[in-house]
């Protein structure tokens, strides 16, 4: 299985890297980096302005990574289907589950690459005039790949049940709207069960200068993301294996 997984991940990455949607993120990030360099050159006096810039930058980085992971993941199976490239792919001695895992892993790696690739320059450039706990930053960096794994798994499953446009919409709501929907969780407890990968986003905690999550909370969040990802992928594989092509 592993031998077949890597070429699929690689092809997913090649395809994603040459598309225009990545160009949009690149333009956005260049604009942000220019802003940060300008702020550094001019020099900031108000610590709160530095915190605002840090929060804005890290939020943009996180959302960009999730958006790219979601979009890359959402187009994988529908495009294979529409262009009929699923046939030569599955004509190889490859299990259908491997194709699902490879596509998901490619989208996850893409999201993680965006996150780490942008986090480093942003963090280095933002003038830090207040104390931000490095342990919280470590937790933030640890939890984001898990959150991205979950984000990439949601559209894979959605596209196996719904038309592409509808699947992307549902995935967008589940990834970016789950936090918003959680406000009604007291009235509708089932909303607590939404995957909500952005629950693992510790940007605000970090920029507010709050210390790390207690170990129990941290492990619970990590396990919840892993559990959701596993459940979504198992259901995707089962669905794809039963589906006539």
């Amino acid at each position: 299985m592993n031998q077949a997984l890597l070429p699929i991940v690689r092809s997913t990455l090649i395809d994603a890297l040459r598309r225009r949607d990545l160009g949009v993120v690149a333009i956005l990030m260049w604009a942000l980096l220019i802003l940060l360099v300008a702020a550094r050159m001019v020099g900031l006096e108000q610590p709160t302005t530095g915190t605002f810039l840090l929060n804005l930058s890290l939020t943009l980085v996180t959302f960009s990574a999730h958006m790219i992971a979601l979009l890359v993941s959402a187009r994988q199976l529908p495009e294979e289907w529409e262009n009929r490239t699923l046939y030569p792919l599955l004509a190889r001695p490859v299990a259908r589950g491997t194709v699902v895992l490879g596509k998901w892993a490619g989208a996850t790696v893409m999201g993680c690459g965006i996150f780490i690739g942008l986090l480093v320059p942003v963090w280095a450039l933002v003038p830090q005039l207040e104390f931000y706990d490095p342990r919280t930053l470590a937790q933030l960096i640890t939890l984001q790949p898990l959150a991205l794994m979950c984000t990439a798994a949601i559209p894979i499953l959605c596209t196996l049940y719904l038309q592409r446009a509808l699947a992307v919409s549902v995935a967008l709501v589940l990834v970016f709207g789950a936090d918003f929907m959680a406000r009604w969780a007291e009235r509708f407890p089932l909303l607590y069960l939404l995957p909500n990968p952005l629950r693992l986003n510790l940007v605000l905690r970090y920029t507010d200068g709050i210390g790390p999550l207690p170990a129990g909370d941290f492990i619970t969040l990590a396990l919840a993301a892993l559990l959701w990802t596993t459940a979504l992928l198992i259901q995707s594989i089962l669905r794809f294996e039963r589906r006539p092509l």
Partner: peptide
């Protein structure tokens, strides 16, 4: 089949050959 528009011929055959 409309093979992956953003891939090169060599990359496509590498993918299928490796699989």
């Amino acid at each position: 089949a409309l093979y992956y528009p953003y891939m090169r011929a060599r990359e496509l055959l590498t993918l299928y050959g490796t699989l």
